[in-house]
Amino acid sequence: MTYYEVLDDRFQDFIISLCRLEKLHTGMRWAEGPVYFADGRFLLFSDIPNNRMLKWDEVTETVSVFRHPSNFSNGNTRDRQGRLVSCEHGQRRVTRTEYDGSITILADRLEGKRLNSPNDVVVKSDDTVWFTDPPYGILSNYEGYKAPSEIGACNVYCLDPKSGALTVAAGDFDKPNGLAFSPDEGRLYIADSGRSHGRDKPHHIRCFDVGEDGRLSNGYIFAEIDPGIPDGFRIDVDGNLWVSAGDGVHCFASDGTLLGKILVPETVANVCFGGPHRNRLFIAASSSLYAVYLNTTGLQFC
Rank of each mutant, 00 (worst) to 15 (best):
P69W: 01
K113Q: 07
Y293G: 08
H25I: 01
R41L: 03
H25C: 03
V129A: 09
P276M: 07
G298S: 12
E266W: 09
T267H: 04
H89S: 07
D226W: 03
L84W: 14
A153P: 13
D236L: 06
I15S: 07
L299I: 12
M28F: 06
S193G: 15
L54M: 15
A191H: 14
T95E: 04
L289A: 10
I225C: 00
D236H: 13
L139F: 10
I235W: 04
S244D: 12
D13I: 06
L24K: 07
A169S: 14
T95H: 10
K146F: 10
R41F: 07
A223F: 00
I48D: 10
N141F: 08
E32I: 03
I190G: 12
S64M: 03
P134A: 11
N51D: 11
D255W: 04
F37V: 00
H250Q: 10
L159Q: 08
V122E: 11
T128L: 06
E32F: 02
F131L: 12
R114H: 11
M28L: 05
S286C: 13
P161F: 08
R206M: 11
H277G: 01
R234H: 10
G164H: 05
E111L: 06
D127R: 14
K23Q: 07
L110E: 11
I235Y: 06
D133T: 06
S287F: 03
L289S: 08
T95P: 03
F208P: 04
S117C: 09
F11Y: 14
V85Q: 09
L259R: 12
I48E: 02
D133W: 04
Q12K: 12
K261H: 05
P148F: 00
G198P: 04
W130M: 10
F131S: 05
L106D: 13
V123C: 12
L18K: 14
S140K: 13
S217Y: 00
V122D: 02
K23D: 00
E61C: 04
V94P: 07
D9W: 08
A38T: 04
E58R: 08
M28V: 01
G275Y: 00
G152E: 08
V35S: 02
A180H: 05
N141E: 05
N74H: 13
Q91T: 15
L258K: 11
I105H: 15
